[in-house]
Design a binder for these strands. Structure first.
Lengths: 142, 142
DNA sequence: GTCATTGCAAAGGGTTTGCACGTAG
DNA sequence: CTACGTGCAAACCCTTTGCAATGAC
């Protein structure tokens, strides 16, 4: 996701461009890890000391509704935000520390579900989540 | 999941069999919908009026650790508990009301991820979640 | 009788909300 | 100028926890 593109697109949709929103977008753009709202806030504060948690939550929520960012909730923990909304991908989730990393698919999982198995649901997306231990947590377990 | 089997297995593992635990197990057995902890509590109360929410949470947590029940968290909402832990299956999740329904797979998604794409993770399981609208919510949207 | 389990109520994360102030357009 | 966006603090939902009372074995 190129920042300039993102801000461009949002401005086009009538988004009022505030420094807070710019900083949130920059934080998401700068890092391809999937951050929690609180982590986004922490990094945003480094650039704009008085940004509030509420604004970060609001802004992330808007980006999700606008389809610019994906919300990923992998367990009972905090949601994580995935800036990679425009490229289909799957997730590797660490059961130890909750970290998420993207992997890129070879097929479309949607096509794997025959109509007979849809039970009247109107399916719009499919996600594959692989669970296990990241290299770091797997090492500590020994 | 046959109740008698379940209670049998748990007794064999040294589980102290209280009326609360029996009722929670009965609720899970009686319904193949995936209930939230609060819904389990509501149904348990019908049979055992003074059962507490804490006990329901504790018991569900134990059943998860024992591998008898699966914890499914599909979004920022409450976790849901899936009594169908002994048969591999995937989930259809309604974006409208949060309902979950099981579907049965034709292949093992684990095998679909080549070693080169694992980034050092030790993968132990894979889940596929299909999102969309259930027949009920799709109807209301019109 | 002993010790695991319960119920209660309070605390705890994570997230949302109400409202007065500030500011982009 | 005028909505719209912000910050603060309180409210909220879901879940976990501390502790004394209870009851399964």
């Amino acid at each position: 996701m190129l920042m300039s593109d993102l801000l461009e697109r949002l401005r086009g949709r009538g988004w009022r461009l505030t420094s807070q929103r710019r900083v949130v977008a920059e934080v998401l753009d700068g890092d391809h890890v999937h951050l929690t709202a609180d982590e986004v806030h922490a990094r945003a504060v480094e650039r704009l000391p008085e940004i509030s948690r509420a604004t970060v939550y609001n802004t992330l929520g808007e980006l999700v509704v606008l389809g610019e960012v994906l919300e990923v909730s992998t367990d009972g923990r905090a949601k994580r935000y995935d800036p990679n909304a425009h490229h289909a991908h799957q997730h590797l989730v660490c059961s130890g520390c909750g970290a998420i990393r993207d992997v890129h698919p070879q097929g479309d999982p949607l096509s794997a579900l025959p109509a007979a198995e849809r039970f009247g649901f109107v399916i719009s997306s499919a996600e594959i989540t692989y669970r296990g231990l990241c290299p770091n947590c797997a090492g500590q377990a020994r």
